[in-house]
Write a protein that binds this DNA or RNA. Structure first.
Length: 657
RNA sequence: GCCGGCUUAGCUCAGCUGGUAGAGCACCUGAUUUGUAAUCAGGGGGUCGGGGGUUCGAGUCCCUCAGCCGGCACCA
């Protein structure tokens, strides 16, 4: 006898050998039909598995999050079966569920093409129509390895060999005459898989994520409960693609990239750079208010300096090296073999330590906060470059805080509070915080690491932000906090960071004089709020879909005339607005107002000030705001004072009150 | 760096199985003086990413290099 407890708390008895499907059937026919799997005593299981003597049973349907995951998992299996039937000789490897879908990695000599997708999707639909029961089997480990090897599935055999402890059994799921190693659970039959899946893209992926291994072919797919959901998802992707910062940059004339002229470096156009300048000015004010001192340090430093800092050994392959010699004015460039080498800075920290070291520092100087909008170059692999999110030349809103060990917590808390306030000002609500702890290869004693990790964690707790610990992901010199933002397509980017460093002050010999006159090593906090200006602006563009808030918009107001009779007044109004600090353009072209409104709306200008004969007569402006059709008729004076106040950066607005 | 795809006018894109380049917008000129998302007419503009090859003939086929896109690896 099996006693089953249902989610509503009611209890029912079933005969021995009963399954969750029997339970579902006893409740209702329709539930049995909808059932995909069951949660038995908290564990997700196949519907048809025998229940234990006492079982809390919850029937999982497509409505549950678990159900959707099962659908995606099964879609991956059906994909694998379809591919193996269509392309004999293809080996299967792994096929996990991911956000919004699944992928499957295949090993095959010939490359797949997206043109194969249609045939594969058709075959998948056939497998669904065939409604093969999905059967769970338990095999001995060694038998499984033998069997998979015998059918040429070397990867599968290797997976079993590596991840299953000796002597332990494995489970295999069979659908039709196809079977695969899998932990399960699965849907009861392939017919339960909704035909709401689609293959999305094809990509290479290293076996086990290691670049030294062979490359497999990965097929990404998406799968949903029904066609409406699939359609909604596809529409959502299309919408997200419209926010792509690279597309918007062209449309709004913000910047351009030229992979042949300067791979990974940005050509900022006037409008894009205006956004940059506003952000830079804002950060400069915020840092100033927090007691930072801004500095500027060399772009090129001698290799000896980088050797001392440790970058030459640890980071050289990401650095641009420049021989220090005077080339001939004509003919081929011949670099003398004995010429000294310089390196373009990939980071600002060594130079900041040099500034700290110049002159003698006292404990009274600490914490010393040195800030720089430091332009760094990193020799990134070409395949890593991505718009302005991942570039080879970028400017960090960098600073290094030199302090005593007992000041770490308060400095970290101050930084986290500042960062949070800045992100609020930019309107970011979703920030992922990661705390990366000690890696295997590290400098410094465990006691120091204990303290450093503890201090960082205390500080991040104080902010109240949720965070996740990334074990072993810290830098070799110390643990770090990473603040991540997500772009329109869902890709996650590290922006802000705070890194504790006990090593660099040591390597470069930085010290200060303490109360008792002794030389003491300071601790260094590497920190950036935005991370890189380029990346942050890229994310901002996507966040706002190109429609910047007034304080950041490159052009804040366009004064557009209806008739040339209003030209003189339009110019006067624009001048008055400019005098109040606003960024204003006039549009006096001989065009209809519809045309002008459309053009500046497409350009996402926050405010169009329309001026016709009437406005010119009455010395008024007809304001139209981006995203609205409403007209707001105000006097020129009202517009000047109102818009000037409205256009203030958030920190200045707070200062005004 | 690795795998796959792509690269045609300033932008977005068309160009079937090889027959010798096209549209819309933008730009320039003219007309139109316009009331809140595209006024009309005319005009100029392309070594079809670079190089090599196959062919009587290549934007179309092949090779190669570069760049871009999507992943993977990398991101101190």
């Amino acid at each position: 006898m099996i006693q089953v407890t249902l989610p509503d708390g009611s209890k029912r008895d079933y005969e021995d050998g009963a399954s969750a499907l029997d339970v579902a059937e006893s409740i209702s026919k329709s539930l049995a039909k909808k059932a995909l799997a069951a949660r038995v005593n908290g564990e997700l299981r196949d519907l048809t598995r025998e229940l234990p003597a006492e079982a809390a049973v919850e029937i999982v349907t497509a409505k549950d999050a678990d159900g959707l995951e099962l659908i995606r998992h099964d879609a991956a299996h059906v994909l694998a079966q379809a591919v193996q039937e269509l392309f004999p000789g293809t080996q299967v490897t792994i096929g996990p569920v991911i956000d919004d879908g699944f992928y499957y990695d295949f090993a095959r000599e010939e490359p797949f093409s997206t043109e194969d997708f249609e045939a594969i999707e058709k075959k998948m639909a056939e497998i669904v129509d065939a409604d093969y029961p999905i059967l769970r089997e338990v095999w001995e480990k060694d038998d499984a390895i033998e069997t998979f090897k015998s059918i040429g599935e070397d990867y599968k055999a290797q997976i079993i060999d590596d991840i299953i402890p000796p002597g332990e059994a494995i489970t295999v799921y069979r659908q039709g005459n196809w079977y695969d190693l899998c932990r399960g659970p699965h849907l009861p039959s392939t017919g339960k898989l909704p035909k709401a899946f689609k293959l999305m893209k094809l990509a290479g992926a290293y076996w086990r994520g290691d670049h030294r291994n062979e490359m497999l072919q990965r097929m990404y797919g998406t799968a949903w409960r029904n066609e409406q959901e699939l359609k909604a998802y596809l529409t959502q992707i299309e919408e997200a693609e419209k926010r792509d910062h690279r597309k918007l940059a062209t449309q709004l004339d913000l910047f351009h990239l030229d992979g042949e002229a300067a791979a990974g470096s940005v050509f900022w156009h006037p409008k894009g750079y205006q956004v940059w300048l506003q952000i830079e000015a804002y950060i400069r004010r915020r840092l100033g208010a927090e007691g930072y001192n801004e500095i500027k340090t060399p772009q090129l430093m001698d290799s000896a300096q980088w050797e001392k800092s440790g970058h030459w050994g640890k980071f050289r392959e990401n650095m641009f090296i420049v021989p220090d010699f005077i080339p001939d004015g004509e003919g081929e460039v011949k670099i003398p073999s004995d010429s000294r080498l310089m390196a373009i800075k990939p980071m600002n920290c060594p130079a900041h330590v040099e500034v700290f070291k110049s002159g003698q520092k006292s404990y009274r100087d600490l914490p010393l906060r040195l800030a720089e909008f430091g332009c760094c170059h990193r020799n990134e692999p070409h395949g890593a470059l991505h718009g302005i999110m991942r570039v080879r030349q970028f400017t960090q809103d960098d600073a290094h805080i030199f302090c005593r060990e007992d000041q770490i917590i308060s400095e970290t808390e101050r930084f986290c509070a500042l960062l949070q306030s800045v992100y609020d000002d930019f309107g970011f609500e979703k920030v992922d915080v990661k705390l990366s702890t000690r890696p295997d290869m590290r400098a410094g004693s465990d006691a120091v690491w204990d303290r450093a990790e503890h201090d960082l964690e205390e500080a991040i707790k104080a902010t109240g932000l949720p965070y996740e610990i990334m074990p072993g992901e810290g830098a070799f010199y110390g643990p770090k906090l990473e603040f991540q933002l997500t772009d329109a397509i869902g890709r996650v980017w590290q922006c802000g960071t705070l890194q504790l460093d006990f090593v660099l002050p040591e390597r470069l010999g930085a010290d200060y004089i303490d109360e008792s006159g002794d030389k003491v090593r300071p601790v260094m906090l590497h920190r950036a709020i935005l991370g890189s200006m380029e990346r942050f602006i890229g994310i901002l563009i996507e966040e706002f879909a190109g429609a910047f808030p007034l304080w950041l918009a490159p052009v804040q107001v366009v004064v557009a005339t209806i008739t040339s009779e209003a030209d003189a007044y339009a110019k006067e109004a624009a001048e008055a607005l400019r005098a109040a600090g606003l960024r204003v353009e006039t549009d006096l072209r001989n065009e209809k107002i519809n045309y002008k409104v459309r053009e500046h709306s497409v350009q996402k200008v926050p405010i169009i000030a329309v001026v016709g004969a009437r406005e010119a007569d009455e010395r008024k402006l007809a304001l139209r705001r981006f995203g609205s059709k409403a007209q707001e008729i105000v006097t020129l004076e009202e517009a000047v004072s109102g818009l000037a106040a409205e256009a203030l950066a958030p920190d200045l607005k707070r200062a005004v009150g």
